[in-house]
Amino acid sequence: MAGYLGLGLVLLGLGIGQYWLQVRPVPSPPQITMAADIYPVGEGWILHRRVSEPRATVVVMHGLLENPLYFTRYYDDPELELIMIGATGYQLPVTSADRPEAPWDLPPAGTPGTIAADAQLLNLALEHLPGTRNVRVHGHSRGGAVILQAASERPDLFSQVEVILEAPVLPQGQPYRPSSAISRLLLPSLHLLWQRRPDMLLEQPIWGPLDDPDKRELIRAMPFNPRSSALLLTNVRDLLGWMDSSSTEIYRHVQRGAILVPGRDRVLNSAAMLDSAHQAENLQIVEVPEGSHFVLLDNPESIPPLRNP
C-alpha cells in the first residue's frame, strides 16, 4: 500500500509540475515605440500604422512564435499603410500612446491560439481599416493558414485582394519532421529553458543564415512572444490538425497573389508545400531554391513587388 501511495504522490507531483510549466506567465518581450493605433481585440491585437495619403495597404499576419515586427523592415515605405495582426494569446511587442476607440463591434471570442480565432481578427481588420483599394495581405508560415481560413469565411473581403503566402502552412502540408506526443510533452520544459537562455537554439540550421542582426533579435524574442506554454501547445496541435483536415478546395477563395516555397525550409516540408501549392489555380508559385523558412528576411528580392494603384 505504501508503494502505491508513493507512486501516486510522484505522479501527482509530476502532473502539478507539468501544469505549472504550461500556465506559468511568460516574461514580456522587449517593446519598441511605434506611431500606430493599437486595438486590443479579445486576447489578440490589431495595430494600424496610418499614413496621410497611402498608395497601398498591407495587412500582415505573423507565424508561430513570431510577432508583427517580422514585417516592419520590409514594409517601411512611408507611403504604405500597414495593418499588423498580433495573434491571440501573444504578447504585444509595440507600445504607443494611440489607443483609439475601435470602429467595430467586438465579434464572439474564438479559442485563443487557434487559426480560426486569428482569421477572425484578420477579417475584422480587413473589413474596417484599409484606406486604399490596393490591398495586399501577407502571411508568413502559420500566417498563411490564417489567411486561407479567413478567405474561406469571408470570400467577399478577398475578391480584390492580393495574397502573399510566404513559406506557408498549407492544406495537406507537413512539418519538416513529424511531431510526436513525446516532443509535445517536453515542449513546456524546452520553452522555459529557451526563455532562460535565448541564444541556446540560435545556431540551429532551422533558422538559415544568421548574418543579419535584426533577424537574430527576432529569433531571440521568440520564446517570449506567446503568453504561456499552454498557448504554444494549442498553436501546435491546432496547426497540425488544420493541415490534416483542410482541403485544397480552400484555395478557390483567394483570387490572386503568390505562394513562396523555399527549397531549404527546415520548419515545414518543402515538397509537401509545393504539392499543395500546385492546387492553387489562382496563385503564382515562386520557388526559392536556396531559401530558408524566413524568405522575407533572407531573400527579400523573391517577394513580388507591390503593384501600383
Rank of each mutant, 00 (worst) to 15 (best):
P27I: 05
A119G: 13
V267D: 01
L185G: 02
V26C: 07
I38V: 15
M200G: 01
S179T: 15
M273Q: 14
Q204S: 14
I303N: 01
V146G: 04
S96M: 10
H253N: 13
D214E: 12
G63N: 09
A280I: 03
L274R: 15
P289T: 05
P93C: 10
Y19T: 11
R220F: 05
G144L: 06
L190I: 08
P27H: 02
P130G: 08
G15Q: 04
P27F: 03
M243Q: 15
K215T: 04
L202D: 03
P100R: 09
D37C: 09
P171Q: 09
V267W: 01
E153W: 01
A102P: 09
T72E: 13
S229Q: 09
G208E: 01
F224N: 02
T72F: 11
P213E: 03
Q204N: 11
V59K: 05
P108I: 10
I259F: 06
T248H: 07
Y39E: 06
E81A: 07
R237F: 01
K215W: 05
R73D: 15
L192A: 13
P198E: 03
G143T: 08
P226Q: 10
H128S: 14
I83C: 11
G257N: 03
A272F: 04
A280G: 04
L80H: 07
V58C: 08
W207P: 03
G113N: 09
R197W: 10
V94K: 07
H128G: 05
A277F: 07
N308P: 00
G63R: 11
A272Y: 02
Y39K: 05
M243R: 11
